[in-house]
Write a protein that binds this DNA or RNA. Sequence first.
DNA 1: ATAGGGTTAG
Length: 869
Amino acid sequence: MASAPTPPPNYSSVPVENHNHKHNHNHQNSHKRHRNDWSSSSGKYSNSRSAAPIAAAATDIAAHGGGNGGGRSVYSSALGSLLDGRRSRLAPEFSGRKSTRYAAKKHSGLPRAALNTLPHSEAANEVLTYLYNAGNIVSNIDNVLISNEHRLWEVEDYIYMLKDFGNTGQLLLAEKCYEFIMCKPNGRVAKGKLTSAMIGTLGRLGEINRAIELFRESRIEGYGMTVYTFSAMISAYGRNGRFADAVELFMSMRGLGLVPNLVTYNSIIDAGAKGEVSFDVVVKYYDEMLAAGVRPDRLTYNSLLSVCASKGMWEMAQKLLTEMDGRRIVRDVFTYNTYLDTLCKGGQIDLARRVFEEMSFKCVWPTIVTYSTLMDGYAKANLLEDALHLYEEMKLRSVCLDRVCYNTVVGVYAKLDRFDEAVNICREMDGCGIKTDVVTCNALLAGYGRHGMYAKVKRLFEEMKARNIYPNTLTYSTMIDVYTKAEMFQEAMNVYIEFKMARLEVDVVFYTAIVDALCKNGLVESSIMLLIAMIEKGIKPNVVTFNSIIDACQESQTLEYGVHGSTQAIEYPNEQPSAMLIDGAFQTMPGEDRILKMFQQLASEKAGHIRKLRRGRQDLNCIFWLFQKMHELHIKPNVVTFSAILNACSRCNSYDDAAKLLDTLRLFDSQVYGVTHGLLMGYREQIWFSAQTLFNELMRMDSSTASAFYNALTDMLWHFGQRRGAQMVVIEGKNRNVWKGEWSISCLDLHLMSCGAGSAMVHDWLLNMHRTLFQGSELPKIVNILTGWGKHSKVMGDGTLKRAIEALLNGMGSPFRFAEHNMGRLTSSGDLVATWLRQPGFIDTLVLYDVLNHSQPAGPPHGYPAPGF
DNA sequence: ATAGGGTTAG
């Protein structure tokens, strides 16, 4: 970790080679700067490109930009000494900057960033200081402005100050300053410049309506008809999540005779990035600027990368980086940070790790944002130790953490159930003058909830309100999730009522939490009603919402409290329930809140211990309907969807229905469903190659996701008698270490496996023993099978696996018995097992066959499994 | 004039 070079003292966000140009970069006419003849690639990114293979890897960084080498050598002598002093690698101006993501998030007194390099007088800085010291008192502000009027250059000084107020969240100062200068007799150009700056500032501060007002005024008064004012307004819309308005404004320019310039294009592209618009939509503006002969710059690419980031489109990001290389545009720290974020969100953690290391060698020094990004990437990938290691590295380098970074660390500790440390971090924040906020609290609430610490949850929830940290929608979603999982329905209902009173907006997470609560309590049809209601309301469900319902379909219930006033089941896949039914189900009318009723019902049921037994109904049609709905809404199923569907098949008694479902789903994803359908049909050899590809893709998932999939697939195969296929899958999973168990001849660890996977594994393990014996070796004195007692199963202590394995072994007349003081361990002496396995013909009991086998050669395999098992 | 944090499914 200490192998990276140390930054030069005069650090900039741009690698050293480009340092001298930085000043120029800050001007709006920067497209005039570089003269190169690299031909334009107009149209390259139009719709056809999305699936294009990407050759560029992180290593291409090394292949490009020989110019950086010179810069590196200049500073290499500073390397050792700075590291010895354990100095931060972070440039001061990046050590404590707040998020630049949304205007609404930016109201805190963090140190101001002096990044503006427009020409301004020294006096402007002085006046700024006076204004910041005016204590937000109007008369003081007026006094400062009046008494310094003669010292400030025309308008550039005021523009400089206005922009600074935008960066520091000083709305009042900005308003007063703008008002003051606009009263003076300025020319049209000056008024236009000032107003553009002010629109930008208001946009940053979330004052979008004020910005719109100023923009309108400027047009009426005749000084706002410039590309600068329009660009500023487009950017202001973008910052406030109003991409559609930004586009409309952008489109109107042509008719007004205004020609968009580099900044205009950058603004509209960035508006797309901030509005989380799809890449295909945003890239149109990129194509358009190329066609118009406007050369993109670093900002253009950084914004395009940012579009990729939230979607994890890392291959596209790589393509953009290659394009930058082609244009000789050097990557800066924004480029790297955004690229890192894209890699993390796209699940390319190893690549992210390499890029992080390469940054330093390219003389682009990690900032606090770099660390936060990577740390969060690790945390999301469940690489919590790696995340903490990064935190240690930051401490070692004396990097001063900011609010975002602290919250990331708190989240990591909360995920690890290390609450003492999480709370300590909160104390440390307090010591640094960083107030814990709603994000910190939400992380802790979720952590306490996962750990069953309901008293702590309750106390923190009260405490945050007492400390004026207002709970947001996510806080309420978390609380409802925690309480419903704990079957504390009365408490959940109270939280729900409080949420309604707070008049916060519902979102997809909130609905999904409720949907899941419904599903988990057997109210599957109600959850589908809610799903439809949320779509009607314009809140798009996501893959989690669907997975929750699909998972519940495997034991589909009929209802249910008369939530929709009838016991009639929804017909799948014919059509949606009628709009009337939806209205009746979940629309909120005064005194008629269905969600509330549901909570009431669950609470009273629980209190009276009269849990209604809901009739189970196998319904694979429901799954097909949901899957189709996902497709309609362009929601991509993921591996969890896949596992849930396989689990549903395992619960289904009809082989034909399961086969039909998987066969039909091949329409949507031939790879995934082709493999499972093929294995179910017994086309083993024919599809094993595709299966390998699928298994390889699964290696990218974290272990619990991967093991859930292997469990589901083997369960399904085992359930329908495709036991040789199940065995092959389980061996594949074992070889890829998805269960992370202890595997040896003396101990078989099954505790993270499903019944089917565990059973197949037992067979394989015993076959191995059998072979060991017949090769003349001896068995260990004691042999064990760990089943666990159900700690990891859905229902704690349920012990399904334990019972299934016990039944399997008893059925074969095995000598294994449960250990006296460990109810999760089956044990036997090696001698007894050897005698048992040596029974003549016993091998036939052990070897697994598929009921259906269309593979070559025909007929069941003979003798031992192929070498390598 | 561009970058990072909290959540829901398994």
